[in-house]
Amino acid sequence: QTIHNGDQTYHYDNPEEAIKVAQKLAKIYNLTVTVKGNTVQVH
Rank of each mutant, 00 (worst) to 15 (best):
Q1G: 12
Q1L: 11
Q1Y: 04
T2M: 12
T2C: 14
T2N: 13
T2V: 11
T2P: 10
I3H: 12
I3M: 12
H4V: 09
H4W: 08
H4R: 10
H4Q: 09
H4Y: 07
N5Q: 12
N5C: 15
N5T: 11
G6I: 11
G6S: 11
G6N: 12
G6H: 14
Q8T: 13
Q8V: 14
T9I: 15
T9E: 11
T9C: 15
T9P: 02
Y10K: 03
Y10D: 01
H11V: 14
H11K: 07
Y12R: 00
Y12C: 15
Y12Q: 01
D13M: 08
D13R: 10
D13L: 08
D13S: 12
D13N: 10
N14K: 04
N14E: 03
N14D: 09
N14M: 04
N14L: 04
N14W: 05
P15Y: 10
P15W: 10
P15Q: 07
E16I: 07
E16T: 07
E16A: 09
E17C: 10
E17A: 08
E17W: 08
E17Q: 11
E17D: 10
E17F: 07
A18Q: 01
A18T: 02
A18S: 01
A18K: 00
I19P: 00
I19Q: 13
K20C: 15
K20S: 08
K20R: 13
K20N: 06
K20D: 05
V21F: 10
V21A: 15
V21E: 10
V21K: 04
V21H: 09
V21T: 05
V21I: 10
V21Q: 12
V21N: 07
A22T: 01
A22Q: 02
A22E: 01
A22Y: 02
Q23I: 12
Q23F: 04
Q23D: 07
Q23N: 10
K24V: 12
K24W: 15
K24Y: 14
L25Q: 00
L25K: 01
L25H: 01
L25W: 05
L25S: 00
L25C: 05
A26N: 07
A26F: 03
A26D: 07
K27C: 15
K27Y: 09
K27M: 09
K27G: 05
K27N: 09
I28G: 02
I28A: 04
Y29H: 15
Y29P: 15
Y29D: 15
Y29S: 15
Y29N: 14
Y29V: 15
Y29C: 15
N30V: 03
L31C: 14
L31Y: 07
L31D: 08
L31S: 06
L31T: 11
L31H: 14
T32G: 04
T32V: 13
T32P: 07
V33F: 01
V33E: 00
V33A: 02
V33T: 03
T34D: 04
T34H: 05
T34F: 05
T34E: 07
T34Q: 05
V35Q: 03
V35H: 02
V35D: 00
K36W: 05
K36H: 14
K36T: 13
K36N: 13
G37Q: 03
G37P: 00
G37S: 02
G37V: 02
N38S: 11
N38Y: 02
T39H: 04
T39S: 08
T39F: 06
T39L: 07
T39N: 04
T39D: 05
V40S: 00
V40P: 00
V40K: 00
Q41P: 00
Q41G: 02
Q41K: 10
Q41D: 02
V42W: 02
V42P: 01
V42M: 02
H43R: 08
